[in-house]
Design a binder for these strands. Structure first.
Lengths: 341, 341
DNA sequence: TTTTAGCACTCGTTAACCTAGAGTGCTAAC
DNA sequence: GTTAGCACTCTAGGTTAACGAGTGCTAAAA
């Protein structure tokens, strides 16, 4: 069924009002607050039609209407105009992302905090799985007779360090040499690309220190096969009236604590760029069938490397959140691309 | 007023029962469940006395009694016997701490998670402020023409890295040399000990790269003047009936998000070793006057460097938590001491 | 044909009221 | 000093009634 102009206006009014108030919207409220030039009775008729076609729902017979998932979907796809963010604000946000550390992981984590702060919803940021990273440099630093600091510099811009103990004593010069040789052998390879022949070579040639370093590479890179992710602003959900019920809030929170669940949510690694909105039941996880998720990928150069997202009740301020997610994802991409250049 | 044997038994029974059930305890319950050999009426008389002396409270006239802060204090100081942890379990916990990374910060953070998991309360771990750390080694690694990775190795066992951009191009050899010279000049100093004469020297001698490195030291060390801290198991508080009220839970959670507050709580850096219990109103912050905190310091060798702690309702399982906090603090101290040796 | 005023009806919310039950303190007997 | 008995208090939970917001329908108006 096609919606005529007036039905659309009524739907728009219901959604706007419900997003604002979290209360079912009645015909009189609409007539009073949004001057559509018709009486409540007319609006009631339109509402009956909208309900029949599934855009709105009546929680109980003597209440107003609330939007259904289908209603929100229509709103997001057709009605909504992303809230414009004034240039000054845009620059400020860009700068706040930029101001962060040059270290990729810190930068991303801080961006997640910013996202939560700006939207007032729960922010999630998925970080590229380290396993995809390419080794750029290995550096060994002598700490004392028994301990050596191993530093792995990965592309793009991730640094991992780990202290190992060795039996043999090495001099600074020896370690410098070993660093150079290892770097030369392993540079440009990702973990997956290290052949067993190469690994045997290294173990033979460098003895226990070689094995230890390969262990680290193995642990640091292979262990973190799943994406890492950062969660911020989790307390914010208590501001939402729909999470007054402790059980519900607890359910969402404990879901978010679980890693796999999060990658389920944002995990649609599709190459699609731009902001994506997933509404209520469209979510893969039943636990958040009453939530919506607004996500966007971010990238280095042309390559998508991660996702940022915001989770809130289906009654979310889509227009505002949409703009912010878009802006932050773009800023992050731009700055990351700049950093690794 | 001195408590006679029977009053103590009654108090003990009330506290045990209330910790278990979270419901006010009546005289009949005690007579039935803990066989003190007297009738409810006698217990009522004792309870009236205990109330008058402030060890227990009657929430309303027709309810049972609940322990007051004073009651819990007496319980913790006099009655409680820390739950013994069987040797096997002790070893298992020790190993689980030990199994963590050799990197101090990761180790401490993982220990915090373990603490939350074992106690089922909110765990907080305060990490030594980096500013106290002593510089051990500086290493510069050439990433590409424009970017250099600066690694600061601090005592005890903390590694910081940061990528800087430079105008001048350096060769690997030059950087190695600069690393050595800087290390020589700054080794053994904490941030506070770096005199302005020394700083000028370095800026003169090493130009822009020297300034950049000093900036990093300044930022990384001085910025983190406040202790860092890790929070874990925050959702657990919803398991406690006293936090069914959303407002209360939100209050606690948002307090814990604030850094200063946390150091207020655990901040009593007293050199005292061993477990400390802070009950209800004894807490410095009014927001957690209905919570108790069980903390213990941990150390490297003889030197106290941080605090671990658990926060829960005053109706906390003190005996159990006490043992766990003690064990984990001891394990952590031992393992840290071993690592930096 | 579309819109609207009017009205009867539904049902959730709130307040008032009532009851059952748990627990007490007091008194008097043991 | 202890205990049985009893009157009393207060909360939790359930029921009822009034209220109000909102609806759908009908019939009149545009």
């Amino acid at each position: 069924m096609l919606l005529n102009e007036r039905k659309i206006s009524v739907l728009h009014a219901i959604i706007d009002d419900y997003i604002r108030s979290a209360e079912p919207v009645g015909s009189r409220t609409i007539a009073r607050r949004y001057n559509l030039g018709v009486s409540p009775a007319t609006i009631r008729n339109e509402m009956a039609d909208l309900e029949e076609t599934g855009y709105i729902i009546q929680p109980h017979i003597s209440a107003g209407r609330i939007p259904s998932d289908k209603g929100y979907r229509f709103y997001v796809d057709v009605l909504m105009e992303p809230s414009p963010i004034p240039a000054i604000k845009r620059q400020e946000i860009y700068r706040r992302v930029q101001k962060q550390s040059q270290e990729i992981e810190v930068l991303i984590q801080e961006t997640s905090k910013l996202l939560a702060l700006l939207t007032n919803y729960v922010a999630i940021v998925v970080v590229p799985p380290v396993v995809k990273c390419v080794l750029k440099h290995i550096q060994l630093v002598l700490i004392d007779e028994l301990r050596i600091l191993v530093i792995l510099v990965l592309y793009p811009g991730i640094v991992q360090n780990r202290i190992i103990r060795v039996q043999t004593r090495y001099t600074v010069e020896e370690l410098t040499l070993i660093s150079q040789q290892l770097t030369q052998k392993l540079q440009g390879l990702s973990y997956g690309e290290m052949r067993s022949g190469l690994i045997k070579d290294i173990k033979r040639e460098f003895g226990d220190i070689g094995s230890a370093i390969l262990d680290i590479i193995h642990n640091e890179l292979a262990d973190s096969k799943q994406e890492q992710y950062y969660l911020n602003g989790a307390i914010q959900i208590f501001e939402q009236p729909e999470f007054r019920d402790i059980e519900r809030a607890k359910g969402l929170l404990s879901l978010l604590e679980k890693g796999e669940a999060v990658s389920d949510l944002l995990g649609d690694w599709s190459k699609i760029n731009g902001v994506k909105v997933i509404i209520g039941q469209e979510n893969p996880r039943a636990e958040i069938h009453e939530c919506s998720v607004v996500t966007s990928n971010y990238s280095i150069g042309q390559e998508v490397i991660g996702t940022i997202g915001v989770i809130g009740p289906t009654r979310m301020e889509y227009a505002r959140v949409y703009s912010i997610v878009e802006l932050i994802a773009d800023s992050l991409s731009e700055i990351l691309t700049e950093i690794v250049k």
